[in-house]
Amino acid sequence: MAATEDSQRRILKQIAPISWEHPADRAALNALRRIPGFDLVLRKIFALFGERALRLAFKANAVRTSEKQYAWVHARLARVCEVLDLEKPPECYISQTPIVNAGAVGFGEPFIVLNSSMLEVLSEEEVEAVLGHEVGHILSGHVFYRTLLLLIFKLVLVRYTLAGLALGPILMALWEWYRKSELSSDRAGLLAVQNPRVTMSALMQLAGGTRGVDLDLDEFIAQSDEYREGGDLLDSVYKILNVLGQTHPFAVMRVAELRDWIEGGEYERILSGEYQRRGEKDDHPYREDLKEAMTGYQEGAREIFDEVDAAVDRLRGRISETFRGRKER
């Protein structure tokens, strides 16, 4: 896929977030929203102290971008919001942190936080892709639930261990949704910059970029293919276990998911103007989202079963060879 020049970047007027959202993300989030009173009660409780405390913390200990502070970040955020048709750009803060990362937090008026180390490692174009990713979280309505999850994790698990054990299964389910929401927002980041290589390069830098070191994107894509396609049954088990404690999917898998979405044709269709507009009737209902998500999980499970079958065949073959070798002796 060729890069899109800034002058040719398509403005996606009135694009509905459902256009880029991963089906597993939509299904899980819709399930949360359908709990009677869930949104209303939690918003009232946490809006009393959560967002105000968070915003004050960053106003006190971070630099807010503007035309005078980190002007290039401010300008690129404005361009991202123009492309994704977000009328009022969110506030953006730069926080002095050595971990290369970013986030969108808040309830009523979410804001974006970029860690300072990200500005040292990523190019300006890659930072713009990250800004598009975070704006995608805001437009999809992820930020409320993600902030809520982080607050629960800090307030409950850290202070009340027994409560944390009781909530363990629920939190694991929420973390799984949290990871799926990253896949949705990776797509939003791509739509914002409309340059697949820049978006995938940003993910590569987040995985292991270092200031002053040039990385090879094609080599990272090959690594992504190797991780996705290689390994035996035990490797598949390890892949599942490894991700359980992570807040984000592994970068190599995010690159693979993004490439699948591009190769499936949906990215090009959106750029050509074929996408759902805000306010239009949802032509992709919750049950269909759930069906798509379940299909994806079933396909994943089927792959594991196929690997189990192949592993058993290989084991049977090795046992037979060993047995024959002993008889020949």
Rank of each mutant, 00 (worst) to 15 (best):
Q8V: 03
R9F: 13
R10T: 05
I11Q: 09
I18F: 11
H22Q: 08
D25N: 05
A27F: 07
A31W: 12
L32T: 01
R33N: 03
D39Y: 14
R43G: 05
K44E: 07
I45P: 09
F46G: 12
L48W: 11
F49Y: 11
E51V: 01
R55D: 02
R64I: 04
R64F: 06
T65Y: 08
Q69D: 14
Y70P: 01
Y70I: 07
W72P: 06
H74Y: 13
R76Q: 06
C81K: 06
V83T: 09
L84T: 14
D85A: 12
C92S: 04
Y93F: 15
I99N: 10
I99R: 10
V100Y: 00
V100H: 07
N101W: 02
G108K: 14
N115D: 09
V121L: 13
V121D: 12
L122E: 02
G132P: 00
H137T: 01
H137I: 02
S140T: 05
Y145W: 15
L157M: 15
G164E: 11
G164M: 12
G164Y: 12
G168D: 04
A173T: 06
L183G: 03
S184L: 00
D186I: 01
G189S: 01
A192H: 03
Q194N: 09
T199M: 00
S201K: 13
S201Q: 15
V213K: 15
L215T: 05
D218K: 05
D218E: 08
F220K: 12
I221D: 10
D225V: 07
R228P: 05
D232T: 11
L233Q: 08
I240H: 15
G245Q: 00
G245R: 06
T247I: 15
F250P: 07
E257D: 11
E257Y: 10
D260V: 04
W261K: 03
E263I: 08
E263L: 11
Y267S: 07
E268N: 11
S272T: 04
S272F: 04
E274M: 08
Q276S: 12
R277Y: 09
K281W: 03
H284N: 15
R287P: 05
E288P: 03
D289C: 14
L290A: 13
Y297G: 10
G300N: 06
G300F: 15
A301E: 02
R302P: 11
R302F: 09
D309F: 14
A311W: 01
D313R: 07
R318M: 08
S320R: 14
E321F: 15
F323D: 07
G325T: 04
R326I: 09
R326F: 15
K327T: 03
K327N: 00
E328C: 03
E328I: 02
R329I: 13
